[in-house]
Design a protein around this nucleic acid. Structure first.
Length: 745
DNA sequence: AGCACGCCGACT
DNA sequence: GTCGGCGTGCTC
């Protein structure tokens, strides 16, 4: 085939003579800006780019990192006027799979594709190859004077003829760096450049035989079988705390590694503890690579690079790990599937759990969701057979579920001024006598949630957001838990000026601690809440102290519910189990169920008999019943029905739009604006954050409307494209056509 | 996102 | 008269 004439001319006369005859190659590039699509750039002569290439391009006055994308360029742009790509980074291009995933997430979340793509290339310096490491090679020969230190170094170098680093060798030989430097000066060593060491060692699937038996083994077999079968499959492991869920999914990890594929384990940030990494190491002989927000830039870069090149086989990470551009991903695990931390709610709004399922579908490999208390939507998927439901109803080994009882606070009220029922206090006393540990849980920081003036009735309210100010006695402050506002605790009422008449209403953990100290002055008591001073370091020490048995009574907020194990804990008391049930969140019951399950699950891992006492004013409430009976079936059934009821008329099946926002109130406000702006839309359903997922699961609605964003023009654009030209509307919204994830599966 | 421009009210 | 608040538009 003859070359085209321009090319022939180019080779005859040199390209420089005929610049205008060479057609400008133009490629679409996603830039990290909130614009609806790709920008077009010219590819300079001699530069090689392909879809997925990571490049630097000029945008206005600055240089940004972008990704060469698929698809057409905007023909309205004159190719000759386009700005050229500045440079191509030396790293593998994003795979087609990854690009499809970015496009899908962008369409589904109605987020600009460039902002989604940015999440996949968020390891800034990683885009240049890692610098080589300087190594030393022994050349042979003897130095002029042989000292004992020098002998040790040379013996080591002769014994292990491998490249050493300066500091590595000094350390191994037990000498100082100057000894090594002296030998280098004498020409004993040659400096060579070595490829950088791997971030983490390779995990071995068969490092040890799995320690699982009975139902765990059966569950693992089931999941491993689905991996062997190949292709997409979604499973939900629903197992009580301590049932060995982790060991079960480790078998899925092992099988995937045996098949030469990479694995991603997603965890809520809080669960990425050293304990988890060690557990992984015990099974696989090496730690997984970590990925979370407070990774050092250097480490972030190494892991990112290891993932694209395929050197890293397993990543354990928080939700942002979902966008790591794996070379050959073969399995995603989403542990603590129900955890709200999987929701990202800035810039790009997404739930990493849902997007993990999508990524697995696109890559055609399995995904495993794991939880002791699955979210209602995953439960629906499990029950309907869309997900393969794997249940682990019993604890593993010698761990027994604690014996749980409700304390009806109407029949067993605390003494005046107190919050702990005599029944709970008695159980605590018995536990102390046996030299065992108790945990009191109250999900409320500070001393008291409300302060008022006995004389004039003034209530302390936040000047910025109008929620009550919470008294914190440790810090001598009153704080707003909504916006962070705080001031010193006042001594006089600002309204009537009266001194010493301010009264604290209701309990916080600090106040419970005060009550416990009154009843058990000799017990070693500790409060664990996110606002104790001393940060992570102090917390780690305190957890150690608890594990060693140096503490008798722990009083804590949510913080104690997650992750940590308290091996000596035999009594758990829930101070106010009803807290959180009546805050207007349609997800309140579900969240309370999850929290209470987690907290009561903290006890009883020892084999010692353990108890849980739950103080409630509503003993018949479905959450309380589900918790004490250990049977959540009826609870989930009811939750699903409740959510469905919320979807019935006035809009029901006729609704063509769903307005959903962070709170139901926000959604209502936005919907009001929309109804006024677009009276011809047949139905606008207003859903709180909780109902929207169910609506999608049931496939009732064709559109979803996410109400976010800040510009009037977003609203206008929406009205124009989706509703036709309605009257001008005020308000700020961002809108997207919804692609039902379930129809995609 | 960042930045520039333009329009109005509060001031040295 | 200016400074600076924010609402709006633009970036291939």
């Amino acid at each position: 085939m003859a070359k085209d004439s321009a090319d022939m001319m180019g080779s005859l006369f040199g390209d420089a003579l005929l610049p205008s005859r060479t057609p400008v190659r133009v490629v679409p590039i996603l830039v990290p800006l909130p614009v609806p699509g790709a920008y077009s750039y010219a590819v300079p002569d001699g530069m090689h780019v392909e879809p997925g290439s990571v490049v630097q391009v000029p945008v206005g006055p600055r240089q940004l990192i972008g990704v060469v994308w698929d698809g057409e360029n905007d023909e309205r742009l004159d190719p000759k006027k386009l700005r050229p790509i500045t440079l191509v980074f030396d790293c593998p291009p994003l795979s087609k799979e990854m690009r499809d995933f970015v496009d899908w997430v962008s369409a589904y979340t109605l987020s600009p594709p460039g902002l989604v793509a940015r999440m996949a290339i968020r390891a800034p310096a990683a885009l240049d190859p890692e610098p080589m490491v300087e190594g030393l090679r022994y050349l042979g020969g003897e130095p002029d004077r042989l000292t004992p230190a020098r002998t040790r170094v040379l013996d080591l170098a002769k014994e292990q003829d491998v490249p050493w680093t300066r500091s590595g060798m000094a350390h191994a030989a037990g000498v100082s760096l100057s000894v090594i430097d002296g030998l280098i000066k004498q020409g004993m060593f040659d400096t060579i450049f070595l490829p950088p060491p791997p971030v983490v060692a390779r995990p071995e699937p068969d490092y040890i035989a799995p320690r699982i038996e009975g139902p765990q083994k059966e569950a693992a077999r089931e999941i491993v079988a689905s991996i062997r079968e190949g292709g997409f499959a979604a499973s939900l492991i629903d197992g009580v705390t301590g049932s060995g869920k982790t060991e079960v999914y480790f078998e899925a990890v092992a099988e995937t590694l045996r098949r030469g594929k990479q694995v991603m384990i997603l965890l809520p940030e809080i669960a990425l503890t050293p304990a988890f990494l060690e557990r992984f190491e015990q099974r696989f002989g090496a730690k997984p690579a970590e990925w979370h927000s407070d990774l050092s830039p250097r480490m972030r870069e190494k892991v990112w690079r290891g993932v694209v090149t395929g050197e890293v086989r397993v990543v354990a990470g928080a939700r942002s790990a979902l966008f790591l551009p794996f070379e050959e991903l073969g399995l995603i695990i989403v542990d603590e599937e129900h955890d709200p931390a999987y929701k990202q709610e800035d810039r790009v709004f997404y739930n990493a759990r849902d997007m993990a399922v999508v990524r697995a579908r696109i890559g055609d490999f399995p995904v495993v969701l794991v939880s002791a208390t699955p979210s209602v939507e995953s439960q629906v998927n499990g029950l309907s057979g869309r997900y393969n439901l794997v249940q682990l109803p019993t604890r593993f080994g010698d761990a027994a579920l604690p014996d749980l009882h409700l304390i009806d606070m109407r029949r067993h009220p605390p003494e005046r001024g107190g919050f702990l029922s005599p029944l709970l206090l008695r159980a605590m006393a018995r536990t102390l006598e046996k030299k065992e540990q108790s945990l009191l849980f109250l999900n409320r920081r500070g001393y008291a949630p409300l302060t008022l003036c006995r004389v004039c009735g003034h209530r302390f309210q936040c000047p910025q957001c109008s929620s009550w100010l919470v008294e914190h006695r440790f810090r001598n402050q009153i704080q707003c838990h909504q916006c962070g506002y705080h001031q010193p605790t006042p001594e006089a009422c600002p309204e009537c000026g009266t001194f010493d008449n301010l009264v604290a209403c209701g309990p916080g953990v600090e106040r419970i601690a005060e009550e416990v100290e009154k009843h058990f002055p000799d017990a070693r008591t500790i409060v664990m809440s996110s606002d104790i001073l001393g940060g992570v370091k102090r917390m780690r020490l305190e957890l150690e102290a608890i594990a060693k048995g140096d503490v008798d009574i722990v009083i804590g907020t949510q913080l104690v519910a997650k992750g940590h194990n308290f091996p000596l804990m035999t009594l758990v008391g829930i101070v106010d189990a009803d807290l959180g049930l009546s805050n207007g969140d349609p997800r309140a019951a579900e969240r309370t169920f999850q929290l209470l399950s987690q907290v009561t699950g903290r006890a009883g891992r020892t084999g010692l008999k353990s108890h849980g006492l739950i103080q409630t004013f509503q003993p018949m409430h479905p959450v309380m019943q589900a918790i004490v009976s250990g049977d959540s079936t009826a609870f989930y059934e009811r939750e699903i029905n409740e959510r469905e009821k919320a979807l019935l008329p006035p809009f029901g099946r006729l609704a063509s739009l769903i307005v959903s926002a962070d709170t139901r109130a926000d959604a209502e406000n936005h919907a009001r604006g929309l109804r006024a702006a677009a009276p011809h839309v047949s139905g606008i359903a207003v859903l709180g954050p909780a109902e929207a997922p169910i609506a999608l699961v049931r496939g009732r609605y064709r559109f979803r409307l996410l109400v976010h964003g800040r510009r009037n023009s977003d609203m206008q654009a929406f009205l124009k494209t989706m509703l036709g030209n309605g009257p001008k509307a005020r308000g700020t919204v961002q809108v997207q056509l919804d692609v039902d994830p379930q129809s995609f599966l």
